Amino acid sequence: MLRKAHVRCGAGENLKIISKSYLSLFIPTKKVPTQKALEKLPSIQREIYFTILKRTMAMFETDYKYDETTVTVEIKGLPFTSKGRIVLDQGWRKLEYPASKKTDKVEDNELPLLQKNETVETALKTSEGFTSPPKLYTEGTLITAMKTCGKDLENVEEKEILKATEGIGTEATRANVLETLKKQHYIDVQKNNVTVTPKGKILCQAVENTLLSSPEMTAKWETYLKKIKKEEGTQEAFLATIQKFIHHTLDSSGKIIENSDWSPTIKSMNHTHKTVGKCPICEQMIIDKGKFYGCSGYSNGCTFTLPKRYVGKTLSEATIKKLLLTKETQLLKGFKKKTGQTFSAALILNEESKLLFKPYEKVEKD
């Protein structure tokens, strides 16, 4: 019989397939099932039973002992290392536990008796082959890379900080980061393989060789957050530094992209946006940005926008075009009050280019 907490899984009960890590939660009870009872079990349940039994027995077995020899031979100034292993006591491995391919390879390699500084004869040969490109990332391996991103940092302190904080983001936010990248069309996922889109390549080139492309930035921020916790730093100073960093990055990235090979691509991407009229503030083109209409002069500081939905009513493209052209729309039906009551009104752009209802318009019930 097997037991987990207060659940008994016997010969006549259904035992679900469980992972190896979960097997350690089960222990055999004193009740020994008969051979007939075991034969009645489905094959998968029978395999699980004996796997758990074998693991429990291994806990009381002797250690697996071996003698491993490492030999380093120097040939023309280059070190070559070989390893050999002689098993002294199989211990718990007697229970037919499968060895790893690496362990099998070492055990099968028998080394001759050698003395230090002994001269040996060698036969060198070269082989030709082709390298394979690295495998594409999956969403799973990307999340793992985010968790272990600090392992290659040279600064030991920063490396330890990222190890303690588990790299970039948290368990709750890393998946959301990938979802955002997909929604913004920086990456594309096909058959679980992640590829970078042309838009994503532009972003990569923009942040290349900056702190944004290095986990070092996360380590520095985490360091200062600890100072704030110890009251050795302030929130205001931290946010001010981030603000300066963002402005500097945007300015640098803009110059990098403008002088890069991607500049024609960016211009062509900008031209593909649907235009609906001219901006009433800076006379640049108003383009469809998906959820709203915005000025193409945003990078130069113009923040003029128009919503696609206003007071419960969806504004058509024709309505937006008329509004930009004449600063006023015809009477529109379907606006909704908070009470749910609908009404009709015309829209205008006032002298400050703000979207408002036309004054003194007669309210009509639909």
Rank of each mutant, 00 (worst) to 15 (best):
K267C: 01
T326R: 07
I246G: 12
S263V: 02
K321M: 09
K291E: 06
K291H: 02
L250K: 10
A237L: 08
K322A: 14
L332N: 02
G301P: 06
N300H: 12
K333S: 11
G297W: 06
S253H: 00
P280D: 10
L324Q: 11
C295L: 01
K313S: 04
K327F: 14
M285I: 12
T326Q: 12
L306T: 13
L331W: 05
L331F: 03
L225P: 00
K255N: 11
S252L: 10
T326M: 10
F304D: 01
I256G: 02
F238W: 07
M285L: 13
W221F: 04
K267N: 14
C302Q: 09
D288L: 08
K230R: 14
A240L: 14
G294H: 02
T272F: 09
G290D: 04
D251A: 13
L250T: 15
S252C: 11
K322G: 02
M269Q: 13
T326C: 07
I287W: 04
F304A: 02
D251I: 09
L315E: 01
K220F: 00
K327I: 05
Q235C: 08
K333P: 01
G290C: 06
C295V: 05
T303L: 13
E231S: 08
D251S: 15
K255Q: 13
K226S: 03
I256S: 08
I281A: 07
Y293F: 15
H273T: 00
P280M: 12
G290E: 02
K274W: 02
Q330V: 09
T326V: 05
H273R: 10
S299M: 10
T303H: 10
F292V: 00
T265I: 04
Q235S: 14
I228P: 00
P280R: 09
I242L: 14
D288R: 02
C279Y: 03
H273M: 04
P307K: 02
E328S: 03
V276E: 04
K291P: 01
K244P: 01
T241N: 13
D261P: 03
T234L: 05
L325H: 15
T329H: 05
T223E: 01
T234D: 08
S263Y: 09
L239E: 11
S296N: 07
T223A: 11
I228C: 08
L325W: 03
Y298Q: 00
T265N: 04
T319S: 04
G301S: 07
L323Y: 02
C302A: 11
L325P: 01
K267A: 14
I256F: 05
G277T: 10
K230N: 13
V276I: 14
K291D: 10
K278E: 08
I286P: 03
S253M: 14
L315V: 03
H273N: 09
R309A: 12
T234Y: 06
T305K: 05
L332G: 03
K227C: 00
H273E: 09
K244E: 13
K274D: 11
G301A: 06
I242P: 00
L332T: 06
K308T: 11
E222A: 00
K333Q: 15
E236L: 06
I320H: 02
C282M: 13
Q235R: 12
M285R: 13
I281G: 00
T249M: 07
K244G: 12
L325V: 06
L332F: 08
S316L: 07
K220M: 05
G334H: 01
H271V: 00
F335R: 00
Q235Y: 09
L239R: 04
L315F: 05
K255Y: 04
K278A: 08
T326L: 10
T275V: 15
I257R: 05
K274Y: 09
T272E: 15
